[in-house]
Design a protein around this nucleic acid. Structure first.
Length: 1142
RNA sequence: GCCCAGAUGGCGGAAUUGGUAGACGCAGCAGACUCAAAAUCUGCCGUUCGCAAGGAUGUGCAGGUUCGAUUCCUGUUCUGGGCACCA
């Protein structure tokens, strides 16, 4: 029987699905194990071979754990909010919800083809309202909590409010607190909330009217369009992650992450201990001034011991003190510098470390100890956000300060004697201080404490622990993210009630930015503005209207909508007659809406395009009260540009034709208004207050991913984000697999959220991930072709040939030599490439002219039409770029077109992506899974190369042939296995188990190969051996293992499904290793002389040192090396080796 | 500039604790089977000297520790990844 992987894989994927083989219960007697992958962003490009690397590893481990008797949770979902979908929407007009849904479907079908054991019933999607309802809910928890410094944990903000109201705080008494206005109280509380709002700087691009990410800014201008970008302060949301800095550091001790990963997080948090020192300033911006001004400059330093070496101060350009201290003389310079800095992104300020820039303010600080006047500079290398935004620069001890001093010719004070050589700074702490007043003679590291003590004693500074980490910016001026459940009322943030969640992301038609740098949501004025209607009185109406037609609050607006709905149901006969006629654009092609609220009013029919309202009036409109209301309403609507025509019920009942004629005439008489204007008539309260607005920014990508691992546990719970009993059962993620690119962002945020949830008693653990395994990045291997575009002659600068059709491509070897030759200016008429090009382009006038230069364009070509390095020319002609090069000509090497290669990031635009689905089609999922693992260690990054996949496929076929012969016969037997066979089996069991446990999947695959090779060599077809091998293999190649296991045991579950319990290899009993089969009595010892292997001798393992030495020295090869002399020493490591030292 | 990781045949990689360097696979070469192809099987396969036996050499480079180093130490070069110039 052939190994028909297609049929086997299709069948089993269906059977497993039907039997719900991967359904996971939250209730099991077995021990739990939670394996999690970092969920993907469902990009439009679909899955490429880089994605599944980690997924296959986690799948193997999950299946292995299941065989070992664990209840394994191994879910998958999608991180489906994000910028790319929004960008795509901006370009194509397709709604992100639509494209995202489509992309997810593609991803899922691609994942399913690889045969993962996900329980899809637990799928989560961060953009699903059912999911982000809880993201918003958790945000409210963060908003309603503060970090208690005494208890070092999050507590409900209500506790703090209670405390303020009863005991007050450092800055105010309880009495004062209670007297504060709501706004004053809110502002104080905002400074403590874990999710808080404050002003933060963003990259603002005026021309695009939008906020840009750091990497969208290049050289101070926008990446797209090249418009100027500057910093702008905007209200933003933040998470107070800095409060958790110490606990995030401490937590690293108890998790199993790689050391480098922990190191990265430590560096990010960047805890440092130092001191804040207040420096007095000279009153006048000149060194001759005396006394001190009231202003002080607060600097942060980790090296207070070097204070006597502070030759200048550097203040961040954004620092507020700059404008206050700048001298008149320096004002112009400073302003010039400030505008330069404003145009620089933080990333640029970081990247160009070599350029030294700065500007003197004209002001001087005073060294508190020796009263030396220290010039104050501003420079972009000091950031406002870190420490105090100001440093004391010690050029002899800090390389950056040194470079700055040299560049601006600031004299350098040496405080470390011979440790400073004048050539470069020396950041040592081991030198003895000189020129340092009261610190003279002290070792620097001892002086730190002495200096701080003195500073504190003088009251000019204090010890201070600082963190490099800043609070996490949590808002984005974008559309495709979770809306904030926040309403702003008179500048106070009011959280939505929990029962109003989810606050669904409203639909928009346009994805461009809103006004004033706000996100697209700001364009939805109806959605944003919740300012209550003015009361009828405020509006000038004489009497309150009946039937709630005029509303005063948002709550009443809701009622209006309900009213409209009810009105539609309760339509009069006359209304129905008209509706039948005008619906579906039946009257002159115009669209009418029925009972459509316009602000607080509900007209019977309205055509928004024409701003035409039709009222069909009953008798009560004659009553005085109603008539007054009608009048007021008509007047306001007229102000908004609406025309109203009225008909009585009777008129309609008597002659609907005439009524319709009138309506048509009215439509034609009026001008059409633009769609936006028409569909969004301004509400009556617009401009009256504008005080109650929804938050229009959305949450960033990491919001959902900060807690998604909990939702998998209890994905359908509509009472809470995750039931406590359930999270107690599943507890931490035992194994988390993902890339290093999330080392700091995602991992730190989700660790913080977990700690908050733990503090608030919502879950029972404060670290989300017990063990983290980093998968390496699979890079793309790009292929290039080289097209001749222009050739230049010796005598002219003009192109001799503008070579376009037919296109000419030259093979890489020629391209390389051509490049080289042109560089050396020695391309000769008799060069091979010259005549080749000549022949190819068949230009008769060419021979007289020496080609001096050629313009050859390198371009990507799809890796999938290249075999190794050889371009498939036929496919290139037919498939590439829609046949653009059908008539192309090629200059070949040895009859082949060899492509250029480069390793780059895998990306659709580089045509270097390989679709796993294609490989699964061609070789099967089992082959694909094993090949990805066989490629190398999971942690290692490597370029993708499909070349070796054949070898793995051959291995599976060879396995198949242990069970079936060429003519489809089963060839396994029930014979008892002999020692040799058992030895192979148990050696394999041991190695596979060890390798799987240590995630060394590549060596496990080669172990399987060795095992199958060995069994084939000795023609072993015994069920006793083969069955156990299949169970070992099942996590790696589940389909073939299941098929053969079923055949071997004649199980065959019905294709329509049913219970697989006990009948599937998925739940077989994992073979138990028995060391007895591997016991050896002797070993082929390697015998070295002076560490160099000379021979092997088979010696009993029982043999002791003396016996071994005797045997070895008697050996003729060793005798030869000894040359009659006795050895100096014989080293014997039992069971390992022997080394004879001469 | 700073931090982290890595460097082994033509290629991907193995060597788990300092103990036979190159497992396993790809590619290549030679052969068997076949009319032929595919598939399969067998052998060879770091470099170099040698007919061979055997020797020399070899894990980025230069040193060191050791009876013995891909593994440990020092320095160095290059490659990849990260970064918020963090005082």
């Amino acid at each position: 029987m052939e190994y028909d992987f297609k049929k086997i894989e299709q069948d089993w994927q269906k059977k497993w699905k039907d039997a719900k083989a991967y359904a996971v219960s939250n209730d099991s007697a077995r021990p739990k194990y939670y394996v999690l992958d970092m969920f993907p962003y469902p990009s439009g490009a679909g899955l490429h071979v880089g994605h599944p690397l980690g997924y296959i590893a986690s799948d193997i481990y999950s299946r292995y754990k299941r065989l070992k008797g664990f209840n394994v949770l191994h879910p998958m979902g999608f991180d489906s909010f994000g910028l790319p979908a929004e960008q795509y929407a901006l370009e194509t007009g397709q709604h992100p919800a639509t494209t995202t849904e489509k992309n997810i479907a593609t991803f899922k079908s691609q994942l399913d083809k690889i045969g993962f054991c996900y329980d899809w019933d637990r799928e989560v999607k961060t953009s699903d309202p059912e999911f982000y309802k809880w993201t918003q809910w958790l945000f409210l928890k963060l908003f309603n909590s503060y970090f208690c410094n005494t208890q070092q944990k999050a507590r409900p903000i209500d506790d703090l409010i209670k405390k303020y109201a009863t005991q007050g705080a450092k800055d105010f008494t309880a009495q004062q607190w209670n007297a504060f206005s709501k706004k004053e109280q809110a502002d104080i509380l905002m400074k403590r909330r874990l999710a808080f709002s404050a002003y933060g700087e963003v990259n603002w691009c005026e021309a695009l009217g939008t906020v840009l990410a750091n990497d969208e800014v290049v050289n101070g201008v926008s990446e797209r369009g090249g418009y100027p970008v500057e910093k702008k302060k905007m209200r933003q949301w933040f998470l107070r992650i800095t409060a958790y800095a110490d606990r995030l550091l401490d937590g690293l001790e108890k998790v199993d992450f790689s050391e480098s990963m922990k190191e990265m997080q430590r560096n990010w948090i960047g805890k440092s201990e130092g001191a804040e020192i207040d420096f007095d300033l000279t009153p006048n911006p000149s060194p001759s001034g005396e006394g001190s001004s009231a202003l002080k400059l607060k600097v942060y330093t980790t090296r207070p011991d070097t204070i006597f070496g502070a030759d200048f101060m550097v203040v961040a350009p954004e620092h507020e003190i700059v404008s206050q201290i700048t001298s008149a003389a320096q004002k112009e310079e400073i302003e010039k510098y400030l505008s330069y800095v404003k145009s620089r992104s933080e990333r640029e300020r970081l990247a160009e470390a070599k350029t030294i820039t700065g500007c003197f303010t004209g002001a001087y600080a005073i060294n508190p100890f020796d009263k030396r006047e220290i010039p104050i500079w501003i420079a972009e290398y000091v950031l406002a956000g870190y420490g105090t935004g100001a440093i004391m620069a010690v050029p002899c001890g800090d390389q950056r300060d040194f470079a700055f001093a040299k560049h601006f010719k600031i004299p350098i004070t040496n405080i470390i004697g011979s440790h400073y050589n004048g050539e470069e700074a020396n950041p040592t702490k081991e030198a003895v201080l000189e020129n340092s007043g009261f610190l003279n003679g002290l070792l620097m590291k001892d002086a730190i404490g002495v200096a701080v003590n003195k500073i504190e004693a003088l009251g000019i500074g204090k010890r201070k622990v600082n963190y490099r980490m800043r609070d996490a910016g949590f808002s984005r001026q974008r559309y495709w993210g979770e809306p904030f459940p926040i309403v702003w009322k008179n500048e106070v943030a009011i959280p939505l009630d929990e029962k109003d969640l989810p606050l669904e992301l409203p639909h928009v038609d346009k994805y461009g930015p809103g006004p004033n740098g706000e996100g697209p949501l700001a364009n939805l004025t109806d959605w944003v503005d919740l300012t209550p209607n003015p009361s009828p009185k405020e509006r000038g109406a004489k009497d309150p209207a009946p039937y709630g037609y005029i509303n005063s609050t948002a709550e009443e607006w809701k009622k209006t909508l309900q009213f409209a709905k009810q009105n539609r149901k309760d339509a009069t006969a006359a209304e129905d007659i008209i509706w039948q006629e005008i619906r579906n654009r039946n009257i002159a092609g115009f669209k009418f809406r029925r009972q459509h609220p316009i602000a607080g009013y509900i007209p019977d029919f309205v055509c928004l395009e024409k701003k035409l309202i039709i009222e069909i009036d009953g008798g009560y409109h004659n009553e005085a009260e109603q008539a007054a209301f009608d009048k007021a309403r008509e007047q306001w609507l007229a102000e908004q540009g609406f025309t109203m025509i009225r008909f009585t019920n009777d008129a309609v009942n008597n002659s609907s034709k005439a009524v319709l004629k009138d309506i048509e005439q009215a439509l034609l008489n009026k001008e059409t208004v633009s769609e936006t204007e028409g569909s969004n008539p301004p509400l009556p309260w617009r401009g009256v207050g504008g005080e109650v607005r929804r938050e229009t920014s959305t949450m960033p990508g990491y919001a959902g991913s900060s807690w998604y691992f909990l939702r998998y546990m209890d994905p359908h719970n509509d009472k809470t984000f995750c039931d406590r009993k359930v999270s107690d059962y599943w507890n931490q993620v035992d194994l988390y697999i993902g890339g290093t690119e999330h080392a700091v962002g995602h991992l730190l945020y989700s660790r913080m959220w977990t700690k908050v949830m733990y503090d608030l008693g919502m879950i029972g653990f404060d670290e989300p991930y017990k063990k983290l395994l980093n998968q390496g990045m699979i890079q793309g291997s790009s292929r290039f072709v080289y097209k001749v575009v222009e050739l230049f002659s010796k005598d002219s600068n003009w192109p001799l040939v503008n070579y376009n059709a037919p296109s000419l491509f030259i093979s890489t070897g020629y391209y390389k030599s051509l490049e080289e030759n042109i560089e050396k200016n020695r391309l000769k008429e008799n060069d091979e490439i010259f005549s080749l090009i000549k022949n190819a382009i068949k230009k008769s006038d060419l021979p007289d002219i020496i080609i001096l230069d050629a313009k050859i364009v390198e371009s990507h070509v799809d890796v999938n039409i290249v075999n190794g390095l050889e371009l498939n020319i036929d496919k290139f002609k037919t498939d590439w770029k829609n046949g653009e090069y059908a008539n192309a000509e090629f200059i070949l090497e040895d009859g082949k077109y060899i492509c250029g290669v480069e390793t780059e990031k895998m990306s659709k635009s580089k045509y270097n992506t390989v679709d796993p689905t294609d490989l699964c089609e061609k070789y099967g999922a089992d082959t694909f899974r094993m090949y990805e693992m066989f490629l190398g260690p999971v942690e290692a990054s490597k370029p993708w190369d499909t070349k070796g996949i054949e070898g793995v496929h051959r291995f599976l076929r060879k396995l198949w042939r242990l069970f079936f012969d060429d003519i489809k016969r089963k060839i396994w037997n029930e014979e008892k296995a002999n020692d040799a066979e058992l030895k192979i089996l148990h050696r394999t069991i041991k190695k596979i188990e060890e390798d799987t446990e240590r995630f060394s999947f590549n060596t496990a695959v080669s172990t399987f190969m060795i095992c199958v090779n060995d069994l084939a060599d000795i023609k072993c077809h015994k069920k006793e051996i083969l069955e156990k091998l299949l169970i070992l293999l099942a996590p790696y190649a589940p389909h073939i293992s299941e098929e053969l296991y079923q055949q071997l045991n004649s199980l065959q579950v019905s294709p329509t499904g049913g219970d697989l319990e006990g009948a599937s290899v998925l739940d077989a009993t994992y073979p138990v290793f028995d060391g007895r089969y591997l016991v050896e009595t002797s070993k082929e010892y390697p015998i070295s002389v002076n560490g160099k292997l000379r021979t092997n001798i088979n010696i009993s393992l029982d043999a002791g040192p003396e016996e071994v030495e005797k045997i070895v020295l008697a050996n003729e090869v060793i005798q030869k090396w000894l040359d009659g002399k006795p050895p100096k020493k014989v080293i014997f490591v039992k069971g390992k080796m022997v080394n004879v030292v001469l």
